[in-house]
Amino acid sequence: MNWRLLSTHAILLIGMVFMTLPVWVAFCTSTHAPETILRDGLQFWPGSNFAETYRQVLFVDGGVMKSVLGFDMLKNSLILGVGFAIGKVVISMLAAYAIVYFRFKLAVPLFWIIFMTLLLPLEVRIIPSYEVVSSLGLLDTHTGLIVPLIASATGTFFFRQFFRSVPDELLEAARLDGATPWRFFKDILVPLSKTMIAAILIIMFVVGWNQYLWPLIMTTKEENYTLVIGIKQIYQVLAEGGELPQYQKAFALTILATLPPVLVVLIFQSWFVKGLVESEK
C-alpha cells in the first residue's frame, strides 16, 4: 500500500459515505420512537421501534394519512412503475420496428413528430396536459396517470438505435425463409432484444416509480396517491406542527418509497447500467 492507493481509497470512502449516509440515517431514525427523535435528533443506529413504525405506516388506518394506507400507496406506485415500464416498452418497440424495418410514405413526417417529443419535457406543458386529461375525464385514473407519460419517445429512440445495429442480413435471411413482418418481429427481433428489453424495463420502472409532478396534479383523491406523493403530504402535516411530530413515520415512508427502485437497480445492476449507457448513445 503506497500513499497514492491510500488516498484513492480515502476519496472513494468519502464518496461512499456521502452517497449512503443520508439514507442510512433516514432508515435508522425511522426505527426509533418519536420521543427519542424529538429529544436526541437524528439517529445513526437502528432502534427498537422498527416493526411498530412500519406496521403503522403500512397497515393501520389513519396511521399515516387520513384515509389511505401506506400499503395502498405502495400498490399505486407499483402500478405506475410497472404500467409505465410495460406500456413504454411495448409502444416504443412497435413504433421503432415500423420506422426501422418498413418503407412507407409517412415514415419521415411521423419520425419527426416522434422526435419532437424529446424536445419538450412534460414539465413545460403541464397545465394544458392537465386540462386535456381532465376534459377526457381521466383524472384520478390509471390511464390518465400513465398514458400521457408515455408520450415522450425516449424508448422509441432507444429501440430504433438497437434495431439499426441488428445486421441487415438477418432480415434478408428471414425473408428468404418466408417470414412475414409479424413473424420476423415475434420470432427474431423480440427474442434478440431480450436483454435490451429487460434493461429498458428496469430503467423505465425506476423512472415511472419516481414520477412526481404529474401524479401530483393528476391525483386529487388520497386513495390514488403514490408513495412519492404521499410522503410529501405527510411532510406538510409535520410542518404544520402538532403535539408530537411523527418524524419516524415520515422517514419510514421515505424508505418505503426508495426501497423498490433501489432493489431493482441493485439486483439488475449490470443490465441497468448497460441499458442506461446504451440508450443515451
Binding site: M19, V206, N210, Y212, V228, P261, V262, V265, L266
Partner: peptide
C-alpha cells in the same frame, strides 16, 4: 445506487 431515488424523496 442513488440513481434510483426520486428527486422529491
Amino acid at each position: 445506487w442513488a440513481y434510483a431515488i426520486a428527486p422529491p424523496v
